[in-house]
Write a protein that binds this DNA or RNA. Structure first.
Length: 510
DNA sequence: GGTCGAATAT
DNA sequence: GATATTCGAC
């Protein structure tokens, strides 16, 4: 249907993209829809288009948690953009960008007052589109009538820098730290970068790829490969991130958070070195053992791709309807626990036990019914899951071996992690932004405050005084309760305290 | 001159 | 509290 077409189309493109913002674009005018859609895609967004607000809402409901942002026309029959925005805000808490040819201040103001994140006057410029990512899944921000002077495109960046630099040097030459010339109204601060989950995850992954010790702003920026993001942005974020690391390292996490009453967690293996927080996949040792994994590392793989670091050979088919295979090289006995992200659409881990060298996995789409289970002791695994539009996801859980199902309408591909512990491999699938998360990531998100959007509703207060196991379960249940009436817990998936302890306390990563 | 990162401003 | 900006150091 329309939905499929849109999705397949966008998937096809998204395979090539590096930015993982999912936008639902709504406009009753076909031409406008096509043009804006093309522009968005040009700017590396992933776009799904709908011709009416009703369809848009249906899509949002069907793909809860998938979209980061809604961009809608204002004037539409049945339901106008503002009404749609209201519903979207109420039901999905997603930011909405309004676009319209109507540039009457009263209209713009009204829209912004109603809660629209950003108002773009048609015809939309590329500059407008380039800014769109700033609004994706940001918690209700201050809305600005004036378009923020984001320096995400080269020319305007230069202009801005030129301006501010001349001012700066002017001030600086006087220097001697005289009271700075008060910022005039002209001297505008750059629009704040909102570190969304996806941006933060990208940041984390960049650091993993680089290695914490070598991760400096410039390098992180390179690896993140996010257009518009500046070194300063990254530097600022890195500073904060390091503060977080320090806090954790200084046992702050252990005591103040009471994550685990006996402090098994976070202390024994984490306190002494930050690196131990990191996935063994990214340790120098591991990398030296698997040099082939490091070959294509110039930039982070675009999201939705398995990271090349993980040994996934991505075979891209030009036709998104075809199966996409990832071959995951068996990663020896890396002991690693992977927590699916709270808003993880697959809702659960896919675990398999295999002793073979190869796992072929192709899993797509959200799974409202809990994770997949595979228990294979034998040859390679071919897992292909079906996207069932009626159920909105996988068809149930699999127990057994070599389940092969038809796979159509491939939408996302998120094989991200393999761990092996006593013969049990754990394959976790990334969320729609293609990230994997371990405990550390989750903690960092919580600390860094990036986990408060969308389905992720574990709040800081909730985790204080909460036992870790409960915390994990909380996350798990939180995630699953959205789509699954029978929440599965981590322990139900074999994530008992012993495992957590093993991972966090005893597992030696180096 | 570019970059880092701690300090500071917003 | 989060992010931007400043500024001394390298």
């Amino acid at each position: 249907m329309d939905e499929e077409d849109g999705r397949c189309e966008s998937v096809l493109e998204s395979r090539m993209l590096s930015v993982d913002i999912h936008i639902l674009l709504v406009d009753d005018d076909a031409t406008s829809l096509a043009v804006v859609s093309a522009m968005l895609r040009l700017c590396k967004y992933q776009v799904v288009t709908r011709r009416s607000p009703i369809e848009a809402l249906d899509t949002l409901r069907a793909k809860k948690g998938f979209f980061d942002l809604v961009v809608t026309d204002l004037h539409m029959p049945q339901m106008n953009g503002l009404q749609l925005q209201k519903q979207v805000t109420k039901e999905f808490k997603l930011p909405v960008i309004m676009m319209s040819a109507d540039e009457k201040p009263s209209v713009i103001l009204k829209s912004l007052e109603e809660g629209v994140s950003f108002y773009m006057v048609k015809p939309i410029s590329l500059d407008d589109v380039k800014q769109v990512w700033q609004y994706a899944i940001t918690p209700k921000q201050t809305r600005t009538l004036i378009r923020p002077q984001l320096s995400i495109d080269k020319p305007s960046k230069k202009e801005i820098i030129k301006l501010s630099k001349s001012e700066r040097t002017k001030n600086k030459t006087k220097k001697a730290k005289e009271t700075r010339v008060p910022q005039t109204s002209i001297a505008k601060r750059k629009a704040k970068v909102v570190w969304t989950n996806s941006l933060h995850n990208r940041f984390l992954q960049a650091i993993r790829l680089i290695g914490l010790d070598k991760a400096v702003p410039k390098k992180i920026l390179e690896f993140m490969n996010v257009p518009g993001l500046t070194r300063e942005n990254v530097a600022s974020h890195l500073q904060k991130y390091r503060i977080f690391l320090k806090r954790v390292a200084e046992k702050g996490a252990c005591n103040s958070m009471k994550i685990y009453s006996d402090c098994t967690l976070l202390r024994s293996s984490f306190a002494s070195s930050h690196f131990q927080f990191q996935s063994p996949l990214y340790t120098p040792k591991f990398q030296s053992q698997h040099p082939y994994l490091l070959e294509e590392q110039q930039l982070m793989a675009p999201l939705n791709y398995p990271s090349p670091l993980l040994g996934a050979n991505y075979i891209s088919h030009p036709n998104p309807n075809l199966e996409i295979e990832n071959s995951l090289t068996h990663l020896e006995n890396q002991s690693l626990l992977t927590l699916n992200k709270p808003n993880f659409p697959f809702n659960g881990l896919v675990s398999s036990s295999t002793r073979t060298d190869q796992n072929f996995v192709s899993i797509e789409n959200e799974n409202p019914n809990g994770g997949l289970r595979l228990n294979n002791n034998g040859v390679s695994n071919h897992v292909q899951a079906t996207h069932d539009h009626n159920n909105g996801g996988f068809c149930g859980n699999f127990e057994g071996t070599n389940q092969v199902l038809q796979n159509k309408n491939v939408e996302e591909n998120g094989v991200v992690l393999v761990s092996s512990k006593e013969g049990n491999d754990t394959i976790a699938f990334g969320d729609q932004i293609g990230e994997h998360q371990n405990c550390f990531d989750v903690l960092s998100e919580i600390f860094m405050g990036h986990n408060h959007h969308n389905q992720t509703s574990l709040r800081r207060e909730e985790m204080v005084d909460m036992e870790l196991s409960h915390m994990w379960n909380g996350i798990e249940m939180e995630a699953s309760s959205k789509q699954d009436l029978q929440p599965s817990t981590l322990s139900a998936q074999g994530w008992d305290d012993d495992m957590l302890r093993t991972f966090l306390g005893d597992a030696s990563f180096s």
